[in-house]
Design a protein around this nucleic acid. Sequence first.
DNA 1: TTGCGAATTGACTTTTACGTAAATGCCGTG
DNA 2: CACGGCATTTACGTAAAAGTCAATTCGCAA
Lengths: 128, 128
Amino acid sequence: MREYYTITELTREFDVSTRTLRFYEDEGLIAPVRRGRTRLFRPSDRHLIKQIMRGKRLGFSINEIREIIQMYREPPGEVGQLKLMIKRIEEKREELRQKRRDLEETLAELDNAEEACVERLVELGVTT
Amino acid sequence: MREYYTITELTREFDVSTRTLRFYEDEGLIAPVRRGRTRLFRPSDRHLIKQIMRGKRLGFSINEIREIIQMYREPPGEVGQLKLMIKRIEEKREELRQKRRDLEETLAELDNAEEACVERLVELGVTT
DNA sequence: TTGCGAATTGACTTTTACGTAAATGCCGTG
DNA sequence: CACGGCATTTACGTAAAAGTCAATTCGCAA
């Protein structure tokens, strides 16, 4: 496991701009260390970026992603906080399950659409 | 099946504003008929709105939703167009499968996070 | 030491997806 | 027919999430 990544290495790996990574830092999603003014990204930062990109693809806002990332961290020490966190996690999971239903339905409709296209091709006598 | 829905009926059903439905009309996603200046939404419009909301929950932009909705429509008559459409549909399905992977991974991480919280509660001697 | 590319900062701009406000239209009811 | 209540149009506003640009500044190779 590499110790540090430069900002441009990560922009290439995740296909984002440096501006975007700095924006995420401003937003408190990542906190790379510095050598002088230069940012050094550790594997943990890289993993965070991976999670951010996943959240983005799923349509979560920066704030929602921030919340989700906090859920991945060490559980809090106080009982009330713990119970609250468990509740939040369960809510987020329900949201994700809804997204999954949406996803399956959309995939099913696209299946039908493709089928209809293929049938139409057959009608037109095109050999696939 | 009802013949027409009013705009407010649909805003309540889908929990969106009238502004939003008019915006979707401006964007060409729906095309309710008119009685005078008043919009009348048919079941087909209602179904479209359902599809739009699904797309939104999955994080698609208006333009992407427009594309997806076009895929649900009658297949085109010309062979080249048909083949192109099939290609587009396959691309969109691949995108959805990526989202599904993202979703499963996120759900798995949330499972872990919840587990950690529950364990922590047990350590603290809290009887769930 | 100088030069050069890569990195940083800060300010301004853009796009998307609506929100909000003002002025006005339509219509059923008392 | 006046009124209340929903609808509409037009126009401007805004928050989120970056993009873009200009002005440095660093680090290191020559």
